[in-house]
Design a protein around this nucleic acid. Structure first.
Length: 478
RNA sequence: GGCGAGGUCGCCAAGUGGUAAGGCCAUGGUUUGCAAAACCAUUAUCGCGGGUUCGAUUCCCGCCCUCGCCUCCA
């Protein structure tokens, strides 16, 4: 599998360093509220990435952390008058539920930052010993950026630019300046402050809490060792988060940190940045309230290439619903041709251990995925191939194989078949179903005028009748 | 100012040095008593101006516009 590497700025063939398992780390959510669909773009792409690797025969070890101690979790837990643990656990549970709904494979390890304070303290001690860290007057411990020569190599910023800070010359920068030796230096350990409440831990430098960047470095090391195969996150993490992780980890270990960097570009909403103040920040629950499914969201999130901005709109959710339904119907047609009666259910595969598969049908779609995870091209090729298949000319065993491969390629994308009969949840009033039944009888008797009159009547009452081969269905109009 | 991404059919979105996938919508058709569904078909010369080339949407230069990051946001 080939994937673009942020550090090298080129496509690289992925390999497992140990020849056995492809070990990778994804920066997980900060659990202080519901994750939004932008967060999930990243997690969904990481999930497709893992699926494709596994289908290609590569074992994986997937680690994704939970950030449960930082400014926001502390601030909001105190505002909610809850303990940090109580607060973050509730949001972690919610996050996992969303992940499951979105059919994300559970990571092999999902470490929490709070549970790894000793490892973080140990890492700081090592950095102190090696002269990469210092404690300032405010009792916090900082990483000395000038002590790490290749600082900036991931984001391709040089140190001169880093010193300059933003063009706006923000107040925050000026504020911190006297505490740190250099503006670019970042906190490894934050000294206890009044507003931290009960949330502090002991350390050789006094009570306090770990810096955000440090959490990931320590957990990477704990679960994957000094060097591992790939590190991933949203583009906004390139700088400073990942840059700082590299500095901390490599300064401590003297070894290469991550061998490959995989960053997912941001999701846009209605052409602009998603933000709470604009009211365009959606969560999975928001979309479900509007009648969309997690599966449909997943489709939308993979409908653009991960390195391009993807413009999310509610219209694209509606488009996805239709597109998925078409795939489902095509699947049913294949199944029917194969003479099978298996249901095309919406069963997820969260627990499934994906194994290697050789494609006969939908191979080109699979190849799109092997080539820099081109999910939109893969989707396009699935539709093209479905059209070219000419189902009614297939032999039963061909149809069965095509059906099976269709399931496999959807498994790679993590999509499930939507329920073809999705009206199940709609309550039909007795009056309506009675009218509909009368109409059906009239139609069976070929009393067209009567039948059509009844259909119009139903339409007036807001119900549309759609006839099938040997039955009809009712759906509410809008 | 620095770094980066992008401007492709009404909307969403791939791709390529040789005249542009796919989804949604629309239109026409097959089928159906009529609808629906299904199936088939049709719809773009790729932001603007130069350059390189036999040939560029795809490479180079300039310009315009959008968006992201630049100290803790996936």
């Amino acid at each position: 599998m080939k994937l673009y590497d942020t550090m090298a700025r080129e496509m690289r063939e992925l390999t497992a360093e140990d020849g056995e398992s492809f070990r990778f780390y994804c920066c997980g959510p900060t659990v202080y509220g519901p994750a939004h669909i932008g967060n999930f773009r990243t997690f969904v792409l990481q999930d497709v990435f893992r699926r494709v690797l596994q289908l290609s025969g590569q074992k994986t070890q997937h680690v994704r952390n939970i950030t449960d101690v930082d400014d926001k979790t502390i601030r909001d837990s105190r505002a909610a008058d809850k303990s940090l643990t109580e607060f973050t656990e509730a949001w972690t549970v919610k996050f996992r539920a969303d992940c499951e709904a979105l059919n994300l494979l559970a990571p092999h390890d999902e470490p929490s930052a709070v549970a790894h304070i000793p490892q973080q303290v140990a890492l700081i001690e090592e950095l102190m010993e090696k002269g990469h860290a210092y404690q300032s007057e405010d009792r916090s411990v900082y990483f000395k950026v000038t002590s790490f020569e290749s600082y900036g190599c991931l984001s391709h910023l040089d140190q001169r630019e880093l010193r300059a800070g933003g063009s706006e010359g923000s107040a925050a920068v000026a504020d911190d300046e006297y505490e740190k030796d250099a503006v670019a230096d970042f906190a490894l350990w934050k000294a206890r402050k009044e507003e931290d409440g009960e949330n502090f831990w002991p350390s050789p430098w006094g009570e306090g809490r770990p810096g955000w960047h440090l959490e990931c470095s320590a957990m990477c090391r704990e679960y994957l060792g000094d060097t591992f195969d790939l590190h991933s996150g949203g583009v906004d993490l390139v700088f400073p988060h990942h840059e700082n992780e590299i500095a901390q980890s490599e300064a401590a270990s003297g070894k290469t940190f991550a061998r490959h960097w995989f960053h997912i570009t941001h999701l846009m909403v209605d052409g602009g940045k998603m933000s709470k103040s604009l009211g365009n920040m959606y969560t999975l629950a928001d979309l479900q309230e509007r009648g969309f499914t997690a599966n449909e969201l997943r489709y939308v999130l993979i409908s653009g290439h991960y390195r391009h901005p993807l413009n999310f709109t509610l219209q694209s959710m509606a488009d996805a619903k239709k597109a998925l339904l078409r795939i489902a119907k095509a699947g049913q047609a294949l199944l029917q041709r194969a003479g099978k009666r298996e249901q095309a259910t919406g069963e997820g595969d969260c627990e499934a251990d994906i194994l290697q598969h050789d494609f006969v049908y939908f191979k080109s779609a699979y190849q799109s995925l092997l080539q820099d995870l081109n999910t939109p091209e893969a989707l396009g090729r699935i539709f093209s191939e479905l059209r070219e298949l000419k189902v009614d000319q297939l032999r039963a065993e061909q149809a069965l194989e095509a059906w099976s491969d269709l399931k496999w390629i959807l498994l790679a994308l993590g999509l499930s078949f939507p329920q073809v009969e999705e009206k199940a949840g709609v309550e039909v009033p007795a009056e309506i179903s009675e009218l509909a039944e009368q109409r059906w009888q009239a139609k069976q008797a070929k009393e067209w005028a009567q039948s059509d009159a009844l259909r119009d009547k139903l339409l007036e009452k807001g119900w549309e009748v759609k006839d099938g081969k040997d039955g009809y269905e009712l759906c509410p109009r809008n």
